[in-house]
């Protein structure tokens, strides 16, 4: 078994665009669920809109990468408004069903052959890297140490991803310590009480939905930046994985989503390297390598159940401040 390779891959995942993308999406979900109490089960839809918005803007409209990214975020904000205006008055579990259905509709619209010219249907979109890589401030070459050795282009993705994440964390952290965040948390606890105090609860929920949606779209863009946009990624499982990362770290915290995503991806990468290696070494004789790869998703499901039952506040959450109040 090649331990060096396994550990190196695992360590490398700490800085992977996937980890950063999940962290952004989970942070958006923290705004939705942890702070505003909105059961958004459609986070994959927001990520898809961000990623497709970016890719389509570059490929179909020939826009520069930064403008494309802004369009991706704006598209997600518009989606949040369209979804939020009619649905935010629904009861919690109804909202969950509406959002998951809306995310599926979004995915099916990207998948259908009817818009193949623009969306690439089942093949997805790729080859949108030109202007993004031209803007790279790093000279050509390979940098870094040990497992964190990447090409200039790979670093460019990671640096921008981390900068975006840092800004996002700062914004959410500031908001949640402000009176705005206080109103939002009040709404999570009891919407009617907050309305009775003269706050427009609906407007706050909508603002939270848009903010979280934009963060999730940023996550979708970072996730898709290094390679391609594929409709197979934005399935409901993606939503559930982001939820797992969020609940792992702590739903009503700012750094919990980051920690949760980090642990999620480090474990995923480790298991996806380690389990097949075990099979190869003949330690798990009743399993094929592909089965070993599937096993880690089973473990995600079991972990999600255990988390919700035994540690609903997450790693960084306050035991007293359980987020599941209803």
């Amino acid at each position: 078994m090649d331990w060096i390779q396994i550990l190196s891959n695992t360590a490398s995942s700490i800085l992977s665009p996937a980890t950063i993308g999940y962290a952004l999406a989970a942070l958006g979900l923290a705004v939705h669920f942890g702070y505003a109490g909105l059961l958004n089960m459609g986070i994959a839809g927001f990520m898809a809109i961000g990623a497709y918005g970016y890719a389509i803007s570059v490929l179909s409209f020939d826009l520069p990468w930064w403008l494309a990214a802004i369009i991706g975020l704006a598209a997600s904000a518009v989606f949040a408004l369209i979804l939020g205006v009619p649905t935010l008055r629904l009861r919690g579990d109804y909202l969950a069903i509406v959002t998951i259905a809306a995310a599926e509709v979004v995915r099916l619209l990207f998948l259908t052959t009817a818009f193949d010219d623009v969306t690439g249907s089942a093949d997805g979109l790729s080859g949108y890297h030109g202007s993004f890589r031209e803007a790279n401030l790093l000279p050509e070459g390979t940098y870094g140490i040990g497992p964190w050795t990447y090409s200039a282009n790979d670093w460019w993705v990671r640096i921008l991803g981390l900068v975006t994440l840092a800004i996002a964390v700062f914004v959410v952290w500031t908001l949640m310590r402000s009176p705005w965040g206080r109103v939002l948390k009040g709404i999570r606890e009891d919407e009617d009480a907050v309305r009775a105090l003269g706050k427009n609860a609906f407007s706050y929920k909508l603002q939270a939905l848009v903010l979280g949606g934009v963060l999730a779209a940023a996550g979708g863009i970072v996730y898709a930046l290094p390679s391609a946009v594929s409709p197979g990624v934005y399935v409901t499982s993606l939503t559930f994985f982001v939820w797992t990362a969020l609940l792992l770290g702590g739903a009503a915290t700012v750094f919990g989503p980051l920690l949760g995503s980090l642990i999620f991806w480090v474990l995923q990468t480790f298991l996806s390297n380690f389990l097949p290696a075990l099979v190869q070494a003949g330690v798990l004789p009743f399993m094929t390598q592909i089965q070993a790869g599937t096993l880690r998703f089973i473990l995600v499901g079991v972990a999600l159940m255990l988390l919700v039952i035994f540690m609903p506040q997450g790693i960084l959450g306050n035991k007293k401040e359980l987020t599941f109040v209803k």
Binding site: R182, K185, G186, R188, E189, A193, K320, V325
Partner: peptide, 9 residues
């Protein structure tokens, strides 16, 4: 009627 103290604030 049913008190609405915002428990986790």
């Amino acid at each position: 009627q049913l008190t609405k103290a915002l428990g986790l604030l």
